[in-house]
Amino acid sequence: MLTVTDLSIRFERYDRGLTRTVLTPVHHLDLDIGPGEIVAVIGASGSGKSLLAHAVLGILPDNCRVDGEIRFKGDPLTPARQKALRGREMVLVPQSVGFLNPLKNVGAQVRRAAILGGAAGRDAPGITDAAFARYGLAPAVQALFPFQVSGGMARRVLTATATVGRADLIVADEPTTGLDQEAAQQSMAFLRSLADEGRSVMVISHDLSAVVPVADRVAVFLSGTTVEGAPAGSFNGQPEALRHPYSRDMWRALPGHGFDPGPDRAAGPTWSEGEADGCPYVRRCARADAACADTFPPKRHFGRDFVRCRHA
């Protein structure tokens, strides 16, 4: 359904005066999502995961340059095609109600999404009612404005907005943040039901324990690149089921597992600092050697799984 190959995103930014800096928040990124699958992109907050979603939908700011290839249903996603498909065949479930129009009630916004998604104008109210019922929202909620809905309700409204259409690709940005455990599980269950209808879902999250039980596959995101692609089940067993040292350290750090902050090697940055540098995990990795610091680790495949580590 969606295949991302060797994606990089660069943008230039001003420092003091007229000096410009080129940042590469995303590079060497590979991802592949099949129909009916939930793929979770897991990584530290602020590490550029949202940029990946924005690149797929073509909503990056103007000063960005995107390289690499994104294919949707087999054909490359050009800016024109992104514009045509956005909101119709691929939709974003944003992080918060801050993304909704504050001046329109939520019912009107879901109806508009339905029409954008291809429904006829007169069918839209019916589809909207059905979507509200499906996510356990009372019909009266349709008349509320975004600032009036609570966190859990907002999550359902956002999901409804993104799913009234016939979109085949759903991108959910941090669908569990700010929700308590029950609401978070419900939010993930909504996405599961959408995947079970044959749609593809990309979930972007830093919250391993909330996302992994529902996802099919996990892509581990570190410093702008995917260092490992593995079945979600690998996170349920022993850390040895995972291939990349970062994935294993992350697994061991979960409160429900070891709560182990890992070897305190330099407590180094989670962001590496130069294009030509080696492995992004080199400063924190217990197995790093000189070669890891010099060359970017090649991608090694194991069936559908892959890892970017010289030692795995």
Partner: peptide, 9 residues
């Protein structure tokens, strides 16, 4: 994030 402190040529 990777940052190269260069001025655009």
């Amino acid at each position: 994030m990777r940052a190269a402190r260069t001025v655009f040529p």
